[in-house]
Design a protein around this nucleic acid. Structure first.
Lengths: 415, 415
DNA sequence: GGGATTTGTTGTATGGATGAACTTATCGAG
DNA sequence: CTCGATAAGTTCATCCATACAACAAATCCC
């Protein structure tokens, strides 16, 4: 057997769980292991075993035993104990491991293809982006190009001895989270594409089958992580691109809905006056192309050009702000959140759009008098969907580290 | 100490749980106890211990131990074993206990006050309803009348030896599930009323402090239970009354949102053309009063009169169906469910409204081509909000029977 | 240098689930 | 009517993960 300790390892596919699940003793362990791991990962600064014990209510003895497993699994690392300012034995700080286990996030967007890899600490290990125009494209060659990019990243991680926890692929459209295939990505011109089947033709990727995800939802995961320490963890994320996507984040996790098609805010009706087929929806007022058209600019014009545009541009921006506010008022009335995060091109337009959006929300949200509604620009990085995809894989490990431990053990036994 | 074994017993108020909770061995027990109880309660017909073991994956030994506790707590009862058609020792059928433990559901509505009591089996033990007009009423005397009704029900249950698990109060308005007070009930004319404080003045009720709830959400709980066996457990519930309420049910449980103000579908914007303050929202097209006004009928006219009304009535109904469909299309696009249940007056109008609603949904819901969207009339009883309130209390016991066991033990020890 | 203090570890005890053996109660064949 | 087969429910020894308590290690401060 080859001594290839750096071979890519993959989490077993989500096993379908029985309708009712008995809790056995090992469920306890799984729960507490996840608890300790989350505590270490989300702590604002390195924590000791004793800290974790105090935070969770577990005993130090138990925490020690659990931490040992997490360190062995290379999910957590021990830093060198630094003699503190207090009396007593100095604590051993624990933190997320770096460069040991990583997840791959990939993205097909209208303007670019991209792949990145993030480790447990959330650090970007690799990032490749290729710009091109994929409007009305043929899925197969596009996915082939993406697969090549992913293969490069896999090779690089393997070379560095990084275990691959899994991968995710963000697509700007409706992804069926139950049965798998991509249903509709209007701006790519894709419809009913079995993305996984196309990708599986590449041997390297068959070993790392990605979980598909909607780009806005994955971007919202990245945004949620970026805001992890700054206040409330529930918000609506609006992603302005050519299309308008959205996601609802509740207490840090994405609300998916029955099929995984929630948050389609771009298709919320704004006016009943306009033509119904394509007009009348938010996207026809505030989508990137619609906005440029209404401003009398080229569709390839920049946000900066739009902002300093003339009267038509300003009128288009005002109309867009109103439309976004009206659509968001429906969201806020229906799902009861009070924070809005503007992402995509809206992040750069946030200062310009905010007053109009807020006015509509104050006017139309029934709960407005009793809660402060905030509208902010996104703070996650440049490619939030890619990063969010990788983070979603890492989150899955944090949710159920036992599964990952099992997967690693299998590999170790086989060697 | 008095020998009053039938004294009303109340669950301790929801204790605020620590941000991170360690799982100890007794968490295992709590989980499995709840699991077994749910299995017994939701089974379509009585099940044996062996059945439960097979369904849950627990051993028969464990199930026996857990069932013993549930029987002792009077949550589950053993039926007489009936010699089956198979070989082997006949099974002891287990079912929800009847008439032993009950929850009280109360309701203040525009047209009536009501109180009911339901036992673990979901059977109605008592139901009192008083009809009156409470539009623009003074909260204190209304709540006093309600308190008297509740006191009657408590006395009756005590007399029958029924333990009271708790109570819920449904109100047609925004109830703050975090801090407590009623924020706004527009059609009652109530605003920022500390309902619990008013109720606590009545000694009998201070012992059974109700959990407040929005009427549509609680009605949706009753609807969800009524549909427990018929297919998918996720839907949007729309409650048409003078105001229009709504609730989102996901896999059998209510989606509450950040404050508990989700589902306010009545305030979703339909058209941007109309005046913005009160017009333009669903309620101004399809609320009961709006509907009667538009039909040229008296506001106290019946649904039957509306249905057989003339051209104006038919036009009003068509407009209402369109408006409901447009508002629901926003809900379906945002939260991704595919079933709509029409409750309140819409249940009686469902046959008339359905085509218009469905047409709008087919047109406006982006996911429509890939999932069948259904619109149905509600099937829960006449006072779903009251019943749903009681059910929500019973559900809480089913979620965490240990808490109820603890509460009962305290009473038993004290005696 | 010694006491105080805090961290992490090493036992032993405990609660809850498992699994196998056992008892109880029925059906069906001879 | 008796006996074997079959299934339900119970009893008991075992296992496992955590709690609890005692202990060792490493620092601060007087």
């Amino acid at each position: 057997m080859a001594e290839d300790a750096s071979a890519a390892k993959v989490l077993p596919r989500e096993r379908l769980r029985a309708p009712a699940r008995a809790a056995r003793q090992q469920s306890l362990r799984a729960h507490n292991l996840a608890l300790v791991l989350r505590e270490v990962l989300t702590a604002p600064s390195p924590v000791s075993r004793a800290d974790v014990a105090a935070l969770t209510g577990l005993t130090r003895a138990t925490v020690s035993a659990l931490v040992e497993q997490l360190v062995a699994a290379r999910l957590v690392r021990e830093l060198t104990p630094v003699a503190g300012q207090r009396a007593g034995r100095p604590a051993v700080p624990l933190a997320a491991a770096r460069g040991t286990v990583a997840a791959i996030g990939a993205e097909v967007n209208v303007d670019y293809l991209g792949v990145c890899a993030l480790d447990m600490a959330g650090e970007t290990l690799v990032e490749h982006v290729v710009r091109d125009d994929f409007r009305q494209s043929d899925p197969v060659p596009v996915l082939d190009r993406l697969a090549d990019l992913v293969a490069d990243v896999v090779a690089e991680l393997d070379g560095r001895g990084v275990a691959i926890a899994g991968s995710a692929l963000a697509i700007p459209g409706l992804v069926d989270s139950v049965t798998g295939p991509l249903r509709l990505a209007p701006n790519l011109g894709w419809r009913d594409v079995d993305v996984l089947a196309v990708i599986a033709r590449h041997p390297v990727l068959a070993a790392v089958p990605p979980r598909l995800g909607n780009d806005a939802k994955l971007a919202a995961i990245a945004e949620s992580r970026a805001r992890r320490r700054t206040g409330p963890r529930s918000f609506v994320y609006v992603s302005g691109e050519v299309g308008i996507g959205g996601a609802i984040v509740l207490d840090g996790s994405i609300f998916r809905g029955v099929h995984g098609w929630s948050g389609e805010i771009g298709h919320v009706a704004i006016g009943t006056d306009g033509p119904r087929d394509m007009g009348g929806q938010l996207e026809s007022y505030a989508g990137q192309d619609a906005l440029m058209d209404a401003a009398g600019l080229s569709r390839s014009a920049s946000i900066a050009e739009l902002l300093r545009g003339g009267e038509a541009a300003q009128r288009a921006l005002d109309r867009a702000a109103d439309a976004i506010g009206i659509a968001l008022s429906a969201v806020l009335n229906i799902v009861d959140v009070d924070r809005v995060v503007l992402g995509g091109i809206y992040a750069d337009l946030a200062a310009r759009l905010r007053p109009g959006v807020e006015a509509q929300l104050r006017d139309r949200v029934i709960a407005a008098p009793w809660t402060e509604i905030t509208v902010e620009a996104a703070v996650a990085g440049r490619y939030p969907a890619m990063a969010g995809g990788a983070l979603s894989v890492l989150d899955a490990i944090a949710e159920d580290p036992v599964e990952w431990l099992g997967a690693e053990d299998e590999v170790l036994v086989a060697q």
